[in-house]
Simulated assay, not measured.
Amino acid sequence: MVEDTSPGRHDTIMAACDDHRYGQLGCKELHDNCADNLKAAMRQIGLAIPAVPNPLNLWMNFPVGPDGTTSWAEPLSKPGDYVVLRAEMDCIVAMSACPWDILPYPKACMPTDAHDQLLD
Rank of each mutant, 00 (worst) to 15 (best):
V83R: 06
D90S: 09
A114L: 11
D90C: 06
A15H: 09
K28R: 14
D18L: 01
P79Y: 05
I92N: 10
A108E: 06
D116M: 13
G8E: 04
P79A: 10
G80N: 08
A51H: 12
S77A: 13
C17G: 04
R86D: 13
D113F: 07
T69W: 03
N61S: 07
P79W: 08
D32W: 07
R86S: 12
A51D: 11
D116V: 13
E3K: 14
I13H: 12
D67S: 08
G23W: 02
T70D: 04
D32C: 02
N37L: 15
L118H: 08
N61Q: 06
V64Q: 11
W100H: 14
A73R: 00
S6E: 08
Q44Y: 09
I102D: 03
H10M: 08
H20E: 14
S96A: 14
L119Y: 09
H115Y: 14
L119R: 10
M95W: 08
D36T: 13
Q24T: 09
I13R: 14
A48N: 09
A35P: 01
S71E: 09
H115L: 15
C91W: 05
A73N: 03
M89D: 10
H10Q: 05
K28T: 14
S71N: 08
D11C: 13
P66R: 11
P50F: 05
A51M: 12
D4T: 07
W72N: 00
I45C: 12
W72R: 00
K28N: 04
I102G: 01
A114D: 00
A48H: 10
W59C: 12
A97S: 15
C17R: 01
A94H: 12
A16F: 06
T69Y: 02
D113E: 11
P99F: 02
A16G: 03
L47I: 11
A41N: 08
A40R: 13
G46E: 08
L76G: 13
T12A: 11
V64K: 12
H115T: 13
W59P: 00
L103A: 07
T112C: 14
P53H: 02
L58I: 07
A41G: 15
Y22R: 02
C98M: 02
K78Q: 15
V84P: 01
D67N: 14
L56Y: 10
L76T: 12
P50I: 03
A108P: 06
M14T: 05
D36I: 04
E29G: 02
H115M: 13
L103E: 08
P50R: 08
Q117H: 09
S77Y: 00
L118A: 15
V84Q: 12
D120Y: 07
P106T: 00
S96T: 15
P53W: 03
C98F: 03
C91N: 05
C109H: 00
D11K: 02
D19W: 03
D67I: 04
I102P: 01
L119I: 11
K107D: 12
